[in-house]
Amino acid sequence: SDTTADETNSEEPNQSEGETYNLSVSHHLPSHHPIQTEVLEPFLAELEAGTDGRITGDIYAANSLGDPSAHYELAVTGVADISLTVHGFTPGVFPLVQVIEFPFFTKSAEKGSEIIWRLYEEFPELQEEHADTTPLWLFTAEPAQILSASKPIKTLEDMKGLRVRSPSPLANKIIEALGATPVSMPMGDVYEALARGTIDAAMAPFSTAHDYNFHEVIDYITVGYFSMTPFFSVMNTDLYESLSDHDRELIDGLTGLKMAQHAGATFDKAGERGKQTAQEKGVELIELDEDQLALWQEALEPVIEEWINEMEHAGLPGQAIYDRAVELSEELN
C-alpha cells in the first residue's frame, strides 16, 4: 500500500485526516461472485466513506495475485493487504478450524459463520492458528449436500462404493466413513467429472448447482446439511498496526461477528438460489429423515473421535472446541 504521511494533531480527530491507503484485496472467487459484490465491495465502500476517501481498495479476483494455496501467504507477507479464501487451501496450518467441517451443526451459513467466529473469540489456540495475520472475520459457506449424477442416494447403504468429490482432507475421512471413495479435486473440475462419470457424486453446497451449472449434470441432491467449508478474511498485521486509532476502530467496527454473519447470509442467499435453480431444472431433492440422519451421524462418530484424539495428541483442545461447537449449534438452532 502506498502511504503519504500527513502529520495532524487537531483537537477533534477528523476522519479525513491521516495517512492514505490503497488496499489490495485478493480472493480466489470469480469477480462476479456475491462474496465480492455483496461483501467485499460494500466493505471497501464503507471504509472509503468512513475516511472521506482516504482508504480505498482494489479487489484482485480469481487468483490474479497468486494461487489459492498462496492466499494466506499473501496476507502474511503483505503482498496483499487483505486476503480472503478457504482455510483448506493451506493444509496443516489451521487444524482447529476444521471442527466446523463436521456435519449437522446447522443448516445455515449465517449460523455456521457465527459459530466459527465465536469459537475464534473464545479459543486462544484458534487465534494462534491465524496469528501471522490479523483476522477481520471468519465465515463458512452454506453446508454441503450430496449432488449425485444419476444415482438416487436415499440411505447410507446407497453411498457404498460411490466415487465422491471431496472438498478437504477432513471431508476425505468423512466420505470414507460413509462407505464411499473420496476423490479430491478443485470445484472447477467437478462439472466435467460429474458429466463423464469420473465421479458419481460431489459433496458441495446448493449454491454450486447454480454458480457452477451443476444442475445440468446431476439428477439428484441428497439434502443432509453435511460439511461446511470455513473461509478467512485476514489483514496483513504490519499494515493493521500502522493504522491510526481512528482507522483501526473503524475497521474493527465494520468487521468481526457482524461481517461474519453477513458473509454467511450472502452464501445462504446463493444457496437458496442454487436450490431453486436445481428444482426448476428438474433435479430431485431427497430429504433424509430423522432415522436416516441418526445412522449417518453414527457412522461419523469414529471420525470425530479420531480427529479429537489427533488434536489432543498435538496439544490442542480438540474435545473442548468440539463440545463448544455442539453447544453453540444447539444455542443457535
Binding site: 494466506y72 501467504e73 493451506t90 493444509p91 496443516g92 487444524p95 501471522d132 482432507p169 476425505n172 479430491s184
Partner: peptide
C-alpha cells in the same frame, strides 16, 4: 521458514 513455523503440509 514461514511454512515450517505455520506447519503447512500437503493435503493427502
Amino acid at each position: 521458514q514461514r511454512f515450517l513455523k505455520s506447519n503447512a503440509v500437503t493435503g493427502d
